[in-house]
Simulated scan of single mutants.
Amino acid sequence: MVEDIKIKIKNYKTAPFNSRFPNQNQTRNCWQNYLDFYHCEKAMAAKGGDVSMCEWYRRVYKSLCPISWVSSWDDRQAESTFPGKI
């Protein structure tokens, strides 16, 4: 299973269709993948697992989200004022 995920990450080109977000506006998809990446990273680190498994979420949010949003969210996380639950 780990190898399958690593192959998918290696062959990744752009965010695939996600039935949770069927509309043209992908703002919520961007936000959810950003949160999912940090949830995954935190959970895998706590379990002592392979954090590279979370790379899929990072690639998806990087392809969907404007850079200015991501940098703003990263800054807010550093300041402990991030509104999302991670």
Results as ranks from 00 to 15, higher is better:
G48H: 07
E41D: 11
G84Q: 12
C54T: 03
S19H: 15
N29R: 15
P22Q: 11
Q24H: 12
K8H: 02
P66D: 07
R28L: 06
K47R: 04
L64T: 03
K62A: 01
V2M: 05
K8P: 00
K62V: 00
C54H: 08
E3I: 00
Y38I: 06
Y12V: 03
A45I: 02
E79Q: 09
K6P: 04
F21S: 01
C65N: 07
W69V: 06
V51E: 12
V2D: 13
F21P: 01
F17D: 14
Y61P: 11
G48D: 02
R20D: 01
F82L: 11
W31H: 15
E55L: 00
L35D: 05
S68A: 08
Y57K: 09
V70L: 15
N33F: 14
S52Y: 12
W31E: 15
G49H: 05
Y57R: 05
R59N: 04
G84V: 10
T27Q: 15
R76Y: 08
Y34L: 05
A78N: 15
K6D: 04
I86A: 04
I7L: 03
E41K: 12
S80L: 07
C30F: 07
C30M: 08
I67Y: 14
T27G: 15
S68K: 11
E79W: 09
C40T: 01
Y61K: 09
Q26P: 08
Y38K: 02
P83W: 05
E3C: 01
P22H: 08
P83V: 00
K42W: 03
K10Q: 03
Y61H: 13
A46D: 05
C30V: 02
K42D: 02
E41G: 05
N29F: 10
C54V: 01
N23R: 10
N18Q: 05
W73M: 12
K8A: 02
P16G: 02
F82S: 14
W56G: 04
E41S: 09
D74M: 07
C65T: 10
K13V: 14
C65D: 12
M44Q: 14
K47A: 11
V51H: 08
A43H: 09
Y38P: 13
K85C: 03
G84P: 12
M44P: 03
H39R: 12
W73H: 14
T81D: 11
D36M: 12
P66T: 00
